[in-house]
């Protein structure tokens, strides 16, 4: 069945929403019960990165084939990915208020990385809006997308490893690291990641269908 992944994603998300609140978690300093945010905050960022990677692949295929189809798909994936940064920021901000005592800080490289990634993709959309010719827009925005994705990854993958982060698991903060994400938590965390990634793919498919329908409508 082609759409089985949709039901799987909904079931996994429902399961993690409920069981994430009920199961036992390790008691750690500062974190306490807020460690459950791992189930809701981290998977959303996985979904965002997954969408951005998909957008990159579509942009590369656009450059390869020159088809407008891949251009539309790349833009749709970026829209969905950018959308996922909203729940990611909200859950993270709320959690930070109760553990760090502030909604936002510029001291943390991961927060800065997210802010820059959002700026990069907003710039991508502005670039798309500013070119009228479809073929030209497809090519130019694909080039920018490829460049931007690499720079974003330098920012969020390499630079945070150079400095201490306030995030759990970095700089000696207690966290689910390799030693204390216990099996209990894995039972919720991994399904949550898979569930949200599949869900983001579903959103992307719906967005694609919408684009194609609009395209057909305008053609006739």
């Amino acid at each position: 069945m082609k759409s089985a992944y949709k039901s799987i994603s909904v079931l996994l998300i429902l399961y993690t929403l409920v069981w994430g609140l009920l199961n036992a978690v390790p008691r750690l300093d500062i974190l306490n019960e807020t460690i459950r945010n791992v189930y809701y905050h981290v998977p959303v960022w996985f979904a965002m990165l997954f969408m951005m990677a998909l957008s990159l692949i579509q942009s590369l295929r656009q450059l390869q084939t020159g088809s407008l189809l891949h251009d539309a798909k790349a833009a749709n994936a970026a829209v969905v990915g950018l959308f996922f940064s909203i729940p990611g920021l909200l859950t993270g901000s709320l959690w930070a208020k109760f553990t760090w005592g502030t909604w936002w800080t510029f001291q943390d490289p991961k927060l800065n990385g997210v802010a820059i990634s959002i700026l990069i993709y907003l710039a991508y959309f502005i670039l798309r809006l500013s070119v009228d010719d479809e073929q030209k827009r497809a090519r130019i925005s694909a080039v920018y997308n490829v460049f931007a994705f690499v720079m974003m990854n330098v920012f969020i993958m390499i630079l945070p490893r150079l400095t201490d982060s306030l995030h759990p698991g970095n700089g000696g903060n207690p966290a689910f690291g390799k030693y204390d994400l216990d099996d209990n938590m894995r039972l919720v965390f991994y399904p949550a990641v898979i569930g949200w990634v599949l869900f983001s793919y579903w959103m992307y498919e719906i967005k694609n269908r919408l684009t194609f329908l609009q395209h057909k409508l305008y053609e006739n």
Partner: peptide, 19 residues
């Protein structure tokens, strides 16, 4: 290529220059 004036240059460059 986008020929959308000079503003687009800073919009595109600043975020990718950050790292």
């Amino acid at each position: 290529k986008a020929s959308a004036g000079f503003g687009i240059m800073s919009i595109l460059s600043f975020p990718v220059l950050m790292p």
